[in-house]
């Protein structure tokens, strides 16, 4: 009894520590976002100031709302595109044996090894050559370089581990590969799909370097660039209060996304109705 009690307590203690460490800097950001002026330089642990000025200023000056919309558009498109290309490719890579499969997987991995800064110049030439400069398509296009290899790999791994029997049954029923993917595998792969989709979404949502380079107007820029554009009254002044307010605004949709999709994340094989 005592043992169970200690176990439960230490478990919740662990949970508390994890949550505290994860959330504290964000909490501090919220705290900071309510401050302004010299108050920013003072250390406080509990809210002492409460003013929404920073939020109002972020939302009303510049084109933050527009940029927010751009970010949603870009990140969503990137996820849809990457998942679509990756699910079909993962099926081919995981369930069909052909020559050079290992090599192909290796090449896909190699693609994601190049440092972003190094492909910047070449990508910029492409973006301009295709006439994508300063459009959201430039970002959707360039973000595939880091989302696609990742999603292909993760989905391939997961698809390879799905039991053989379900696919066999489908084949016996005369199902085509497309049907097998959409009707048989997809429902089983929710945890993997949602997880990779979410990670790809966040990666696209947070990307800064490409976004800064491939767009050149307030109407096409995304949120990370918009945050970097927040500036004080003069060159050297860093508007911490507004930066933190903007960061809070940017982080909220992601938290909401996680809360919405978390049922899917936990829907493993057990929930799929098939026991492995």
């Amino acid at each position: 009894m005592l043992w169970t009690y200690t176990k439960t307590t230490s478990f919740y203690l662990l949970v508390a520590v994890i949550v505290l460490v994860s959330v504290f800097p964000f909490y501090y950001a919220i705290l900071t976002s309510f401050k302004s002026g010299t108050a920013l330089f003072e250390i406080t642990y509990l809210p002492t100031h409460f003013s929404l000025d920073n939020y109002i200023s972020v939302l009303t000056t510049g084109s933050f709302v527009r940029n927010f919309g751009n970010s949603i558009l870009v990140a969503t498109s990137v996820v849809v595109l990457a998942l679509f290309l990756a699910v079909t490719a993962a099926f081919a890579l995981a369930r069909v044996s052909f020559r050079g499969r290992g090599l192909l997987l290796m090449t896909i991995l190699a693609v994601s090894m190049f440092p972003q800064i190094a492909v910047l110049a070449g990508l910029f030439e492409l973006v301009r050559a295709f006439g994508l400069f300063n459009t959201p398509f430039a970002l959707i296009f360039s973000y595939t370089i880091f989302t696609l290899p990742f999603t292909v790999w993760v989905l391939t791994t997961f698809m390879r581990d799905l039991p053989v029997e379900i696919e066999e049954a489908a084949i016996v029923d005369g199902a085509s590969p497309w049907v097998i993917i959409t009707k048989v595998f997809m429902p089983l792969m929710w945890p993997a799909l949602v997880t990779t989709g979410l990670l790809a979404f966040i990666a696209a949502w947070n990307e800064f370097l490409f976004a800064l380079t491939f767009t050149s107007s307030s109407e096409t820029r995304t949120v990370p660039v918009a945050i970097a554009l927040l500036s004080g009254a003069s060159q050297y002044e860093i508007p911490w209060g507004r930066i933190m307010a903007a960061s809070v605004i940017v982080t909220v949709p992601l938290v909401v996304l996680v809360l919405i999709f978390q049922r899917k994340i936990v829907q493993g094989l057990t929930a799929g109705g098939v026991k492995g």
Binding site: L120, R128, L212, T213, S216, S218, A228, S231, Q235
Partner: peptide, 20 residues
């Protein structure tokens, strides 16, 4: 076209834009 206040970010962008 507004740019971030970080001068090294600006310089990098301008160089790239001009090079292209």
């Amino acid at each position: 076209v507004p740019m971030p206040p970080s001068t090294s970010d600006q310089f990098g962008q301008y160089r790239l834009w001009l090079a292209a």
